[in-house]
Design a protein around this nucleic acid. Structure first.
Lengths: 206, 206, 206, 206
DNA sequence: CATGAATGAGGGTTCATTCAT
DNA sequence: CATGAATGAACCCTCATTCAT
């Protein structure tokens, strides 16, 4: 009576337990320096158990990446509804993106890590899942743009603008890594928003 | 006499020999799948010799990264002189950047790899060398901007604009990885140039 | 009532179910590459259940070996009755033996595997069961010989001849493994029968 | 000054050291129960060193098998020269074969193990090396037969007879495993020689 | 300077077996 | 009876690095 449910719950707990430990280690030491044996030891589980829940090391980390991407997608979608005008909405998206990269810095790092690393290292299946999430994010931006730009822009144009918008912000956030050296003395948020202004000015017909 | 010079020449030849082999393997198999023993064997040298010329594996690959960055810097600097107007010069820079990411794809990958990965994985000394190169590139852009924008913009403003310019392009190139999936059907060069237009329109007072 | 019988029947069904799956996997992938977990999954049973029906992996495969030996014994016995003269009977036996090694190639392999491997690997109990079956086969041959050779041969002589007969055939079949290399271009059946002739000529007084 | 030679000698010593340890363990525990780590520990070497001398576990054991086969070949060849008549020569071969299977029992076991085991387990390259040795042995027998049988027998016939001769003896030796059970009370040497007689009587025209 | 044999901790992964439910 | 999650020792193998020559 409910014992099956309990079992199910326990199984999900274990999964979380593993992911939590893996995440912690990943954030502390990087992907290559985190071994399955370490994860097992830290999670107070046997190695075998890890392989009961994840096919291999790669899929364990892919699960972490997806966690991050899902979180990002959801946040962006939610934030976008809060703004009134298209410009406001885009600003919300931009800031949500930055906030994510700060609050969930390590998630952002790992996402970037997977996104940037040479394809040899990661299999196609992984890439495709990333793409899916990227698509979801682009869609949100496109929906906003549709209402903010001239009516004769076709879907193609809109997608392009969405890509320009997102990639610029992404590039900016990438450069944040340099704020203690190259960008010393700058307030990054200001910089980021001026970048946002710069793009929006060209993208939206205001 | 002259034997010291010969010795010196031979030493540099060895160094190149090692770097050439390492580069070839890196480009073919990725950073993790390239071992010191493999490099030694392919370079027809002993493992010990590798350690005579490079402190460890990491610094060997850092040397390759520097190669890439130097190449990038030089190309950008040279291209920038070819344009006549500031706009033209910036376009040259932008295209040089993209060309580099295509022609020296693997260099770009490895640069990005080092740039993006969590700082823990790589020692500060490495990051600082990257920063130095980024500064050199930004300087080039700043010099162009100085002549293209209103005289009352101060150094700070110029630097900010340079950062916005570069980071946007970089973000765009990052997204290139997605061209076979998310950006299917788009001509990437067009996309890239429209991104360029978008930024330049706001940055330069034309 | 009858429910006990049903239970019994179900138990035997389970056992067969397990053996069937194990046999299929064994024949497909070999003994080492077949794990208990795999058998369980393929049989749509839990691992635990496997251990309810077989003490361990080894005894599961020993059961398969016995299956094979039983099949071989029965076939030989049956065939031996079909011939009219002792010579004919022996030929039947010889051919049945070869046919078995072809049709039930994998059974033959596994029997041989157990027979040939150093004793340390397999416990005595297993060996003794094999011996029992070998005895049964020898008996069949002895019975035939008793009628084909001079009356003054005693049991000892008969057994010896039976052993010579069987072991020669067995050795021949062992060499069949080499037919694609060492014996290239030979028709194995011919070879086998010429070996049979050779022995029978000496064994029987015709 | 001879230092290179000494190095070479040391290398071969190491190789022997490894093979000796591996052989000892193999003979004691069987192939599957002998791990590379165990060999390393027993040989007082590091695991890495093992892999300096042998590509992998398999090739280490293949080397042992070849040792055995080479020994067998050489012994047979040498013995065959000692006999005067063809019959005598064949007897020498047969007895050498049996002696080998006794003295180098474990070698014989491992050879048989490789010969008999299902092909899945061992790669073709291994099998082919075994075949080569088998061929060498058959050649010796053929050369003897050529002088002992009627002149109009062609090469094909001779090879067949050689195969029958060898395989019968081999089968007999296989059955030796059963001497404590099935063949209880028999003197195996007698049995073996009666098998030899049986075959030779048919093969040679005396 | 150059060599390259040696190291050995550590990598990811498998698997027969147990036992609480 | 049946389950199947959990175990953890053991597997084979790699590799950056050292050091005696």
């Amino acid at each position: 009576m409910g014992s099956r449910e309990r079992r199910q719950r326990e199984k999900e707990q274990r999964r979380s337990q593993i992911l939590d430990t893996a995440r912690k280690l990943l954030f502390k030491k990087g992907i290559d320096a985190t071994s399955m044996n370490q994860i097992a030891k830290n999670a107070e589980l046997s190695v075998g158990t890890l392989y009961l829940y994840f096919k291999n090391k790669e899929s364990l980390f892919a699960a972490l990446q997806e966690e991050g991407l899902t979180l990002l997608c959801d946040t962006i979608k939610e934030e976008s509804t809060k703004g009134l005008t298209p410009r406001e909405k885009l600003e919300r998206v931009a800031l949500a993106y930055m906030d994510f990269s700060e609050e969930y810095r390590k998630y952002f790092d790992i996402i970037n890590y997977f996104l940037t690393s040479p394809e040899i290292v990661f299999p196609p299946s992984l890439k495709s899942r990333v793409d899916e999430h990227v698509n979801r994010i682009l869609s949100v931006v496109e929906d906003i743009l549709k209402k903010g730009i001239s009516k004769d822009a076709d879907d193609r144009d809109i997608r392009r603008l969405a890509v320009v918008f997102c990639s610029s912000l992404h590039g900016m956030l990438q450069f944040k890594k340099l704020q203690n050296t190259v960008l010393q003395g700058e307030d990054f948020r200001d910089l980021y928003l001026s970048s946002f202004d710069c793009i929006v000015r060209s993208v939206l017909c205001e």
